[in-house]
């Protein structure tokens, strides 16, 4: 509420100081950040140091194939007698690497293209048509096509998932730029002779950070899902790498007799993606209540 009503408030020494919530207080009022953060932290921990404590995930043991969960094999064994628990722990690393790599690359590329599109009229129409075109191609089909053309490696899978995510980031960045560039403080900076790169860096870019962090978490979650779907369809990372998608793909045939081969990696994947999404929701509510309404 304005303090203007009191003319005395205009004296220089009585500049009012508003009580500000500390970062910590804000986070505490959104428990989803804590819950999501802890869950994700555990999954990252498992992914980073977990593999040190398990047996070899690719060691074959044909005598003990398709064993149900028991003391020796927490999650049972697969059709080659490999320890599903060890494979799931190793898979965490791959899922997280794909998730983080895709979100970082997609946000990075999207940020640059979105800023250009939002500020340079001439390029805007062209860029946005290309983005519309990219968005009309179903993401999974696009990824399948890209991978089947360039061969399946971790890198091509990451790129294939990045390509369809980029247009979403571009649209979001562009919409932020278009809104912010109309703000009087940006116009004041133009009137003060600030050059375009500086205006973008000082006045526009900071406004994109909050929505970008939120968007990055959602992309991270959806990238992990897409990776597992590609693996499941047999179009993902080479089958010898124990990614969650690959483990589940191999479990399909034996689903009726050994459902754990699909369920355990499935649960691990769902929990990881859930933790990322909960974290994303919490950050959205904390960082910017305005974008909360748009998503």
């Amino acid at each position: 509420m304005s303090v203007d009503a009191n003319p005395q408030a205009m004296e220089p020494e009585s500049v009012p100081a508003k009580a500000e919530l500390s970062q910590w207080q804000i986070i505490r009022s959104h428990p989803s950040i804590i819950i999501g953060g802890i869950l994700l932290g555990i999954m990252i921990l498992i992914g980073v140091i977990g593999p040190l404590f398990t047996v070899d995930p690719i060691a074959l043991n044909p005598i003990k194939r398709l064993k149900p969960p028991q003391a020796e094999f927490f999650f049972g064994t697969d059709f080659l007698g490999r320890d599903v628990f060890a494979r799931v722990v190793h898979g965490a690393r791959i899922s997280l690497v794909v998730g983080l790599a895709v979100s970082a690359i997609a946000v990075g590329i999207g940020l640059i293209i979105g800023m250009i599109s939002g500020y340079i009229r001439v390029l805007d129409a062209i860029i946005m048509r290309i983005m519309d075109g990219l968005m009309s191609i179903p993401a999974i089909l696009l990824a399948i096509a890209l991978i089947s053309l360039s061969g399946a490696t971790l890198a091509t899978v990451v790129i294939a998932i990045v390509v369809p995510e980029v247009p979403r980031v571009v649209r979001l960045v562009r919409s932020v730029v278009l809104t912010v560039r109309e703000e009087p403080y940006v116009e004041a900076a133009i009137a003060a002779g600030t050059t375009l790169p500086l205006i973008l860096y000082r006045h526009i870019l900071p406004n994109t950070i909050a929505p970008m962090i939120v968007q990055a978490t959602y992309i991270c979650g959806s990238a992990m899902l897409t990776e597992s779907i590609l693996g499941f369809l047999g179009a993902g990372i080479p089958p010898e790498i124990p990614s969650w998608g690959n483990i589940m793909a191999e479990g399909r045939t034996y689903f009726q007799i050994s459902p754990w081969i699909i369920f355990y990696p499935g649960i691990a994947l769902a929990v990881t993606v859930l933790s990322v999404n909960i974290l994303g929701d919490g950050m959205r509510d904390t960082l910017d209540p305005r974008i909360a309404r748009k998503m």
Binding site: G221, S222, L225, S228, I229, F232, M248, F255, P259, I262, F263, G266, I267, L269, A270, V273, L274, V276, N277
Partner: peptide
């Protein structure tokens, strides 16, 4: 949750 569970896991 719906955004987090892979479609095929749900199916199985």
């Amino acid at each position: 949750a719906g955004f987090s569970v892979p479609v095929f896991v749900l199916g199985y």
